[in-house]
Simulated scan of single mutants.
Amino acid sequence: MRKVVLAAMVLCFAATGAFAQILKPVTWQFGAKKISKDEAVVFIKATMDEGWHIYSQHVEEGGPIKTSFTFSPSADYTLVGKPAEPKPKTKYEEVFAMNVGYFDKEVVFQQKIKLKKGATTVKGAVEFMACDANQCLPPDEVEFAVAVK
Rank of each mutant, 00 (worst) to 15 (best):
V95G: 06
T70C: 05
N134C: 01
V95L: 15
V26D: 05
K34N: 04
E94R: 13
A18Y: 15
N99H: 08
H58W: 13
L23A: 08
A147W: 09
A7F: 12
I54N: 09
I65H: 11
G62E: 00
G118I: 08
K114L: 15
I65T: 15
G62I: 05
K3W: 13
T27H: 11
T16D: 12
I44T: 08
L6E: 10
I113M: 01
A147V: 07
V10T: 10
P64D: 00
F69D: 08
A125M: 13
N99M: 08
H58G: 13
K24V: 07
A46S: 09
P138T: 11
A14G: 07
Y102R: 04
C12A: 14
I54D: 12
Q135R: 10
K45S: 13
K87G: 09
I113A: 03
Q110I: 07
K45E: 11
Y77T: 11
A15P: 01
A125Q: 15
K87Q: 14
L79D: 03
K114M: 15
F96L: 01
F30K: 05
K24P: 06
V41Y: 07
K116G: 13
L6Q: 09
A46D: 02
D132A: 03
K123T: 15
A20I: 14
D76N: 08
F71L: 14
E61Y: 12
D140N: 11
M129P: 09
V148D: 02
P64I: 02
S56Y: 06
F109H: 05
M9K: 08
F128C: 03
K116D: 10
L79Y: 04
A130E: 10
T70Q: 12
D49F: 04
K114Y: 07
I44E: 04
E50H: 13
D132P: 02
E60G: 13
K24T: 11
F43I: 06
V41D: 06
A125V: 03
D132L: 02
T90E: 15
Y102V: 04
A32V: 04
A8H: 03
E143G: 15
D140S: 15
G101D: 07
V100I: 11
K112C: 02
P64S: 03
K123H: 09
D132K: 09
V148P: 01
V108A: 11
F30W: 14
K89C: 00
S74N: 02
K45M: 11
F109L: 14
T16H: 10
M9H: 05
K33P: 00
A40W: 00
G63W: 00
P83C: 06
A75G: 12
V26I: 14
E106M: 05
Q111T: 01
A18F: 11
E143H: 10
Y102E: 01
A14F: 14
A32P: 05
A75D: 12
E141L: 10
C131A: 04
F144E: 10
V107I: 09
M98K: 03
F30V: 05
G62R: 01
E106F: 07
T47D: 10
D140H: 12
W52G: 00
Q57R: 14
C12W: 13
P64K: 06
C131K: 01
M98I: 04
V59R: 08
H58T: 13
